[in-house]
């Protein structure tokens, strides 16, 4: 780890000003940043600690929706009673993420911006080729160990999976990211790798996440997060799905459905094709099964991750059935 200068920001303005300087990184809970600094992936010259900023950890839920300050800790949000009842998928996605220790430290803002677990990305000393780290250097994962890599939203330049859970729930529930003066719809906040995998989100230098808001909706209230993995805890998703459903008054025709997919795509993935196929349909196992297959339309595997193409639709299907059966 290289020496760096450390600034404890005392206001959002100060943090933004500092963040606009080159080679500067914001520090919230540090569970991603310090980890990557140890790997030699991030070598900031300046670290701006925003974890002491006042007023950025509010959690508020009202009839319009939820407002979650960027510095709210994962565990607090997960345990919040109002979040649990109005946005169960959000709480569940957080409970199933990382470990209790990490959730106690990590913030919502930092969580959205966590980096990929691609092992080639994380080991610069051994693998100079990584387009995400060094644009134009190549991608070591394409023909490497890629069991955890993405099958959706990939490009020839990068197949790294977006690893987080929360953002998958937020994609489904159409959350909005607040960057102080402006807001960005979460689906636009995360970028596809394309030919610029180093650019992962829509923030500009000098911007920081101040909050996220999630609009209230019947689909948000009837929502779940299903995470499938080999280990029962403390592992990233092999595939996951966040599903929210609103029924017609008949209780079985789907009026609105939102589906987010995790663990299989380069960004938190909205499974719109499945949603479109199910809107107006009855919640019946056969219909759901065939619609769920649409989740992986256009998916491309690179060897070790082929199973994800089989697994993801099954996870979507189960998550829909589970959500449909919610009381």
């Amino acid at each position: 780890m290289r020496d760096f200068s450390y600034l404890r920001a005392s206001s959002v303005e100060e943090a933004r000003r500092a963040a606009a300087m080159p080679a500067t990184m914001l520090l919230a809970g540090g569970t991603t940043l310090v980890d990557l600094a140890k790997c030699g992936v991030t070598e900031p010259e300046r670290v701006v600690d925003i974890s002491h900023l006042k007023g950025l950890d509010t959690i508020r839920v009202d009839a319009q929706g939820a407002y979650i300050g960027a510095l709210a800790k994962m565990n607090r949000v997960a345990a919040d009673a109002a979040i649990k009842s109005a946005f169960p998928a959000v709480s569940e996605s957080l409970w199933q993420a990382a470990s209790a220790q990490i959730r106690n430290m990590a913030t919502i803002g930092g969580n959205l911006l966590q980096r990929t677990r691609c092992a080639y990305f994380r080991d610069p000393a051994t693998f100079p080729a990584c387009n995400k780290r060094v644009p134009g250097s190549g991608c070591s994962a394409l023909e490497g160990v890629n069991r955890g890599h993405a099958v959706l939203g990939t490009s020839d330049d990068c197949i790294a999976t977006y690893p987080g859970d929360l953002a998958v729930a937020l994609i489904a529930l159409e959350a909005v990211v607040h960057l102080g003066d402006r807001t960005v719809a979460i689906d636009d906040f995360f970028l596809l790798p394309g030919t610029t995998p180093q650019k992962e989100h829509a923030m500009q230098p000098g911007e920081l996440i101040t909050a996220i808001t999630i609009p209230a909706s019947p689909a948000a209230r009837r929502s779940t997060y299903l995470k499938v993995r080999d280990r029962q805890s403390y592992e990233f998703a092999a595939a996951s799905a966040a599903v929210g459903i609103e029924f017609e008054p008949d209780g079985e025709t789907i009026r609105d459905i939102r589906i987010g997919l995790g663990g299989v795509a380069t960004k938190p993935w909205r499974a719109r094709a499945v949603e479109d196929a199910l809107r107006g349909k009855a919640i019946e196992p056969d219909i759901i099964k065939s619609a769920s297959r649409l989740a992986v339309e256009g998916a491309v595997a690179h060897g070790g991750n082929h199973y994800k193409i089989e697994l993801a639709p099954r996870v979507v299907e189960r998550a829909i059935l589970k959500t449909g059966a919610m009381a």
């Binding site: 677990r117 092992a119 490497g144 160990v145 280990r231 029962q232 805890s233 403390y234």
Partner: peptide
């Protein structure tokens, strides 16, 4: 990784051992 003879999951985040939940 056969190309490099390197163990890729050389850390406890990626080399999985059981947790209490398992």
């Amino acid at each position: 990784d056969d190309r490099y003879g390197r163990v890729m999951n050389n850390n406890l985040g990626d080399y999985l051992v059981p947790t209490n939940a398992d």
